[in-house]
């Protein structure tokens, strides 16, 4: 498979087999574009975290190569890692340190001198400013999640990995997080997130990659994906019940509700556009009058479930 060059992260032929013999990743090829928000979807154990861990230098790949903004992660690891911020899936924090000192610590690890103004702005953005002197162990789970993000942003990374950022997080925080991600994107930060919540990918991502059993099943622009794999339904609420479907409407895939009052057309997202007008004209021509009209489309979730199930 040809990997297009010029992405901020170029993953080529990366495989990982753990010492136990478990094959976590098989020949992954993936190019992450500069400045995009990329969502990596996959069920538990699909290899999402392993892939992230390899790029970040925590797990050694069995084979393959990763290049981050022109820096090979093995040969030129220091430059590569300097660009990356990582928010891990687990709430792994110290206990006794203060919020301020742990965020400053991370900045130091990345070789940067203290910059209280930057740390203040990060803490404020994550609503942690009031907690800056609190010990980490006194924070709630949601606060700890924010703290991990603050730590990842402490060194002003150009690439941010969010591994399941909203797992076990309340609705408020989830929306804050989405806002933060779009702000980061506006600043040109590339964001790669893994998630179970398809809603999240649907809301935030530019592109979606689906990974299942260590294989990258597909990578698509989100809208293309919805377009290509999505299905739509158009329901008409009829003025008077219909006993049976008119022959003129036979070419369409139609369903009539048992009471004969609702007519539903299931169609592919690709057929939208010209098809809808045409369909409605035919309905009219067949003498069917309707009082209301409703359309809906399948979500990324439906697509995801069908993709993963196929394999």
């Amino acid at each position: 498979m040809l990997v297009s060059m010029g992405g901020i992260i170029e993953i080529s032929g990366v495989s990982k087999t753990y010492a136990s013999g478990f094959v976590a990743l098989k020949e992954i090829n993936l190019s992450i574009r500069r400045g995009e928000i990329f969502a990596l979807l996959g069920p538990n154990g699909a290899g999402k975290t392993t892939l992230i861990s390899i790029v970040c230098g925590i797990v050694q790949a069995s084979s393959g190569r990763v290049v981050v903004d022109g820096h090979d992660i093995v040969r030129d690891w220091r430059a590569a890692r300097s660009l990356i911020g990582l928010v891990p899936q687990e709430l792994t924090t110290d206990a006794f340190e203060s919020v301020w000192s742990t965020v400053s610590f991370t900045r130091g690890l990345f070789g940067l001198g203290s910059n209280p103004a930057h740390i203040e702005s990060v803490l404020r953005a994550l609503s942690l400013w009031d907690k800056r002197d609190s010990r980490i162990m006194t924070l709630s789970g949601g606060m700890k999640r924010r703290l991990l993000i603050a730590k990842a942003l402490a060194h002003e990374p150009r690439i941010l990995f969010l591994d399941e950022p909203t797992a076990g997080v309340d609705v408020d925080l989830r929306h804050d997080m989405w806002q933060l991600v779009s702000r980061l994107r506006a600043e040109g930060v590339t964001v790669i997130l893994t998630t179970h919540y398809i809603e999240e990918a649907e809301e935030m991502a530019d592109r979606v990659g689906v990974i299942n059993r260590g294989e990258l099943v597909l990578v698509r622009d989100k809208t293309d994906l919805l377009h290509e794999f999505g299905s739509k339904r158009l329901s008409l609420r009829l003025r008077s019940p219909l006993a049976e479907l008119p022959a003129a409407l036979a070419p369409w895939r139609l369903e009539l509700s048992p009471d004969g009052r609702e007519l539903t057309w299931l169609y592919h997202a690709r057929e939208a556009g010209a098809g809808v007008g045409d369909f409605l004209e035919r309905v009219r021509a067949a003498g069917i009058e309707f009082a209301d009209l409703e359309t809906s489309e399948s979500s990324l979730e439906d697509i995801f479930v069908s993709l993963v199930r196929e394999r």
């Binding site: 970040c56 890692r81 792994t92 690890l109």
Partner: peptide
């Protein structure tokens, strides 16, 4: 033990 080692391992620290 706590898992915070991820931070050291993913930082540009030799």
């Amino acid at each position: 033990f706590t898992g915070t080692i991820y931070e050291i391992l993913s930082a540009p620290v030799s």
